[in-house]
Design a protein around this nucleic acid. Structure first.
Lengths: 284, 284
DNA sequence: GTTGTCCATTAGTTTTTCTAATACCTAAGC
DNA sequence: GCTTAGGTATTAGAAAAACTAATGGACAAC
């Protein structure tokens, strides 16, 4: 049924409004009037049967339902934007290959990618998912964002920061990390056993996932307290979907290192964009 | 700019036409006329600047560009469909938790999910990504599709078949597996070293990925010959995006095992649906 | 050569989108 | 307490888009 999916413009209006917390600002960003944004969001709320925003005299606040909707909508919009651009021809530097972990792709890049693609509509992008640090160069990525240690990548790699391990949980979860299931991603030397309270309590993870992405998703769904990289959690925490479950931040030897091919201006553009985005959480 | 993304109906028309290889059938499926589908696809082609289909007297063939577009569009549509349904209330059995690997989610479930959600619009779904086989039950999934061995999961688990390892490559790649980079996913006991020609040639993988999903994506992008599970490759091969690079199929000890909670009718519905889908490649 | 099936196109109707204008609400400033 | 400013909500009407019905064209099947 054609009517089973709301129009894309409704989702775009919602997503822009969610990021800006303002229909007026969203309107400016996506090139329609404040009135249109307001109507689209209202229509989406009617269709979904939930309130997505709390309207205020000056601006908006997201409801819990609104927050839940953001990742999927942002992801889908990013996917369609990328899909729409997949065939564009342009400058000689029009295809940028970015090899990155699923985690970085989903939690850092995807939610922000549109600021890059809007600014550089003629640059095509190719994303490769989690790469083992071994033989990394064989994928010939212009930008590579592997997960590992400084020793593995050297001086030309720049760490995405902040890079500790933080304990996060869904904002909807009650209880502390001694009462909740613990989620841990494999592949890091630090873990729950490094937690200060590990001496007193048996902090044995109940859920293991193979990426911070999955850990975040687990946490997002209220499955427990996840240890995830601060740099990924950063934007997730900014959106209030997830909260810090413990004040402690464990130093982490491994991290996401960005390496861009310095001879490739487009790669440097992307790299600069990425570090610029690092300062701005996706839902601020 | 509001015009930067084509309307969702254009993507839907394209995706349905791509799966059916017919505008007429697509029209029936998504509830619009053949004329509307034809016009939407034509508009999408104009917007993207490429031909997506080759029109024939009877039906359609996908172009290479058309094939490239499918996964992202299908994924985005699936995401938006799921997003749109996220708040629906309905029967008491309205939330089904499915824990599965990213690979299964992306290559088996996502491309076909709409047949499930259309048939069961009142069932909500929750997907959890790659789970380590240890402590699997802690996520309380109604349906779980872990990757591992029979020994780990026992009699109540049903293997998604066929389950050999096949060597696949992008249809656009020339050369055989001795001339092309080899892609291997970690986590399986079998690999390139089990290939018949491994005795004569040094079949050392150049690219490692951590999931068959990534391997398929690598292969999809013409990065080499990937060893992937037949069950994932099945639908990918059906769409002609990827081709078999070697006739040999290595037996694989590990596989995707589906375990549905027999006391949960909705879980059994999903399980039945999944095995039904297994017989029908996504782009048939 | 005829029939059937499917795609392409056009014209016209219907629906949706969007803007402009205005009302309302509330915080901030004086 | 009043005024101003900034933002949301709503309505009306114009413009644009979506959609259908009808028809023509292409080609495979018989």
């Amino acid at each position: 049924m054609a009517k089973s999916l709301p129009p894309l413009t409704w989702f775009r209006a919602f997503e822009a409004a969610a990021r800006n917390l303002s229909f007026t600002a969203a309107a400016d960003e996506i090139g329609m009037t404040q009135s249109a944004v307001s109507q689209h969001v209202k229509a989406l709320e009617s269709r979904l049967g939930v309130a997505l925003f709390i309207r205020k005299a000056r601006g908006l606040a997201l409801t819990d339902d609104g927050r839940k909707l953001i990742p999927q909508v942002a992801s889908a919009l990013g996917t369609l934007t990328a899909a729409s651009r997949i065939f564009e021809t342009g400058t000689t530097q029009n295809l940028l290959t970015v090899a990155t972990s699923v985690s970085v792709a989903e939690w850092i890049i995807a939610p922000r990618l549109r600021t890059f693609t809007d600014r550089h509509p003629d640059i095509r992008l190719r994303f490769l998912s989690t790469i083992w640090p071994d033989d990394f160069k064989s994928v010939n990525a212009d930008v590579e964002i592997p997960f590992g240690t400084f020793k593995q990548f050297g001086k030309n790699a720049t760490l995405l920061e902040p890079n500790g391990l933080v304990a996060i949980k869904s904002a909807t979860l009650d209880g502390d990390l001694h009462a909740l299931p613990l989620i841990e991603a494999v592949g890091t030397s630090a873990g729950w056993e490094n937690w200060p309270s590990a001496k007193k309590h048996d902090l044995i993870p109940q859920i293991y996932v193979d990426s911070f992405d999955a850990a975040l998703n687990m946490a997002f769904h209220g499955n427990g307290v996840a240890l995830v990289s601060e740099v990924l959690a950063h934007s997730a925490l900014a959106s209030d979907q997830l909260v810090v479950a413990s004040d402690f931040i464990a130093p982490c030897e491994e991290g996401y290192y960005v390496q861009a091919n310095a001879q490739n201006p487009t790669a440097m553009l992307f790299r600069d964009w990425l570090f610029e985005q690092e300062k701005m959480p996706a839902n601020n």
